[in-house]
């Protein structure tokens, strides 16, 4: 799937990286995104939000999507400029239906130990879009320091 048109980025501008299904192997592209955010002048709170959402997305891909299977891969696409950051994480699993994940903030779910990653991504990012039957997630964060 190409970058959603309302994310405001030319698909050809994205960087593409594929890594083995191992969280340690995601550190290099993550470090690159974080250094680009600093270079583009994003504030600490926004970088915290983006890092958290990125970590949740790749953890979901490695652990839930690819079921910790080391023979699978995680596919990343990303773009950073001073106005926005866009990233995509795709796994090679069976997919899932985000709407089937129960609301972790409902009283009856508050003490469930899992299920908070998706809502944190939703809370911290400007837009979150799923594709490929849930195997792919696109995230957009607009830089609040640059949003008019």
């Amino acid at each position: 799937m190409k970058v959603p048109p309302d994310f405001g980025v030319d698909d050809a501008a994205l960087t593409n990286v594929t890594v083995p299904n191992d969280l340690r192997r995601v550190r290099e592209p993550e470090a690159h995104i974080m250094s680009e955010l600093k270079r583009c002048g994003y504030d600490d709170d926004t970088i915290f939000a983006i890092k958290l959402a990125f970590e949740e997305a790749v953890t979901n891909a490695v652990k839930h999507g690819n079921c910790n299977d080391r023979s699978k891969q995680v596919h990343l696409r990303y773009y950073v400029d001073p106005q926005r950051v866009v990233f995509m994480v795709r796994d090679e699993g069976c997919g899932f239906r985000p709407q089937d994940v129960p609301d972790p903030t409902a009283d009856e779910n508050l003490e469930r130990p899992s299920g908070r990653g998706l809502m944190l991504m939703q809370s911290y990012m400007t837009k979150v879009r799923y594709g490929e039957n849930g195997r792919e997630v696109w995230l957009l964060k607009e830089n609040p320091g640059r949003t008019k």
């Binding site: 970590e55 949740e56 469930r112 899992s114 908070r116 990653g117």
Partner: peptide, 10 residues
């Protein structure tokens, strides 16, 4: 200074 949702579950 950073915490994943899995840590909240723990």
């Amino acid at each position: 200074d950073h915490l994943a949702s899995a840590a909240l579950g723990m």
